[in-house]
């Protein structure tokens, strides 16, 4: 069942035409440097301010550590570092977006560090363009599509892919 949810979600993002029930999708947009990204609002569990993490030894540097989220141990990932956009400087104003995804059928909760959260935006599904090959900074593997909102370009992220861990989850699936 969980599996199904994950699949339909993927489809709705990749083939916007296939879903007729609603033409609009809501995204939470945030910034990293001077770029703007969006994640499906339904995948956002909560937004928290940065708090110190417990470091985990011998893992990739962008996996900053774990925190206690109401009794659950939840990893925190630095998106700037994940996207090779340089280092963040953490302040109490730094924002952590807690996201939920399904890896296979298993739910996974993870926090991602972003510069700041900008808005909840409505995007017409038909207006979402497939991601071109940037060839540049951001690895396109996490990008599901592009949309423009108020003249700005927003890169829509695939949360399921974003929350996959190197060396843990297979790339297929």
């Amino acid at each position: 069942m969980n599996n199904k949810m994950a699949n339909t979600d993927d489809q709705s993002q990749q083939q916007p035409d296939s879903k007729k029930s609603s033409d609009m999708a809501q995204y939470l947009s945030f910034t990293l440097g001077d770029e703007e990204y969006g994640v499906d609002i339904l995948r956002v569990q909560e937004i928290r301010s940065w708090e110190p993490v417990s470091r985990i030894p011998n893992v990739p540097a962008y996996e900053k550590g774990v925190v206690n989220l109401r009794g659950a141990i939840v990893p925190i990932i630095d998106l700037r570092e994940r996207f090779n956009l340089g280092h963040s400087h953490y302040t109490p104003l730094t924002v952590v977006v807690v996201l939920q995804a399904f890896i296979g059928s298993k739910p996974r909760v993870m926090g991602v560090v972003v510069d700041s959260v900008s808005n909840v935006i409505d995007i017409e599904k038909t207006r979402i363009q497939s991601a071109p090959d940037f060839g540049a900074k951001v690895s396109t593997e996490f990008i599901n599509g592009l949309a423009s909102f108020n003249e700005r370009m927003v890169m829509l992220l695939d949360v399921n892919k974003l929350l996959k861990l190197e060396g843990v989850d297979n790339d297929e699936n």
């Binding site: 110190p52 925190v67 909760v109 843990v168």
Partner: peptide
Amino acid sequence: NYRHVEGISGATILGDGSV
């Protein structure tokens, strides 16, 4: 929510809420 880390069997929450 995370991964197996060699040398670590699990985690716990300390009195101050940290892990």
